[in-house]
Write a protein that binds this DNA or RNA. Structure first.
Lengths: 146, 146
DNA sequence: CTATATATGCGTGAAATATGCAATAGGTAG
DNA sequence: CTACCTATTGCATATTTCACGCATATATAG
């Protein structure tokens, strides 16, 4: 009987393997991004009894062992995502709230500059950049022309 | 009797000049950065009767007329800052939570790249970059050597 | 100084997250 | 496979952050 890598990851740190943890991790992987509420919904499709508190505690645990990470996007709702995916930066539209992911590599130079100039070791994966998406920038432009 | 620029700014949009608004604006300018709670404390040193609701509403008003802006840094606590200051980017340490401001110009190239490659009009002023500051990066390094 | 609409203070409410505790269930030794 | 020990869960509740309704106070025009 083989253990999966994620199970080992938890065990190494003295955590137990539970269905809740498995489901939460699967949901995060499947959703790509997800807020705690969204993850709850997803988990409850399979196991309706799972409690929101468990989601929060599980997300903490999974993050502490490095299986997932989270980003704060704007106001209130943290977004969790799989560590499997290639690191990415979130572009968040202030207007329509749409979130676009771009490869972390897009900020490689910026990151290097922060390191060299400010001795700051930026975590690009955690970064959310706010602004206006193409569609919404277009809308504002129309207004200002009117 | 001259009006100050901030008073005009409010009046232009049909807002009234009140001691609360003056105090909140002064606090923000003085604090550099401040969460609503911190701003409340600061304001209450002068006027202890001011209510937290007033702080929230006043911050909204001041932001709507462009006298201040806010950034979401990590979890829950938005940070308001003066618009007088030159636009800056916040570097937030994940470990010690220290916030460093750097000129927005540091991200000029990155910003341009986002525009050209992704048609995304980034608001650098709103941007918070998380990572490790020099001191905390040093600490982790020690640990990993130990 | 007066009229009046805007602002404030206060109590209340809602949303998101944390916590204490008893019950449940992994994991391990035998 | 069984029993035991402790991590984990579910539930109820507390906390934190922010929004809202309404009566009162106050800034501003005339």
């Amino acid at each position: 009987m083989e253990s999966t890598p994620w199970e080992d990851r938890l065990r190494e740190q003295g955590f137990r393997i539970t269905p809740q943890r498995q489901l939460v991790l699967e949901s995060v992987n499947q959703l790509g991004h997800g807020t705690p509420e969204e993850i709850l919904s997803s988990v409850q499709k399979t196991a309706s009894g799972v409690n929101l508190s468990t989601i929060y505690r599980t997300l903490e645990v999974l993050e502490s062992v490095g299986l997932i990470t989270h980003t704060h996007i704007g106001h209130g709702a943290p977004v969790y995502h799989s560590q499997d995916e290639s690191p990415h930066i979130h572009l968040v539209c202030d207007d329509c709230a749409e979130v676009t992911s771009i490869p972390a590599a897009a900020a490689a130079e910026f990151s290097l500059d922060l390191q060299e100039t400010y001795s700051f070791n930026a975590h690009m994966t955690h970064m959310a950049v706010t602004g206006l998406c193409k569609a919404c920038a277009g809308k504002s432009e129309l207004k200002s022309h009117g």
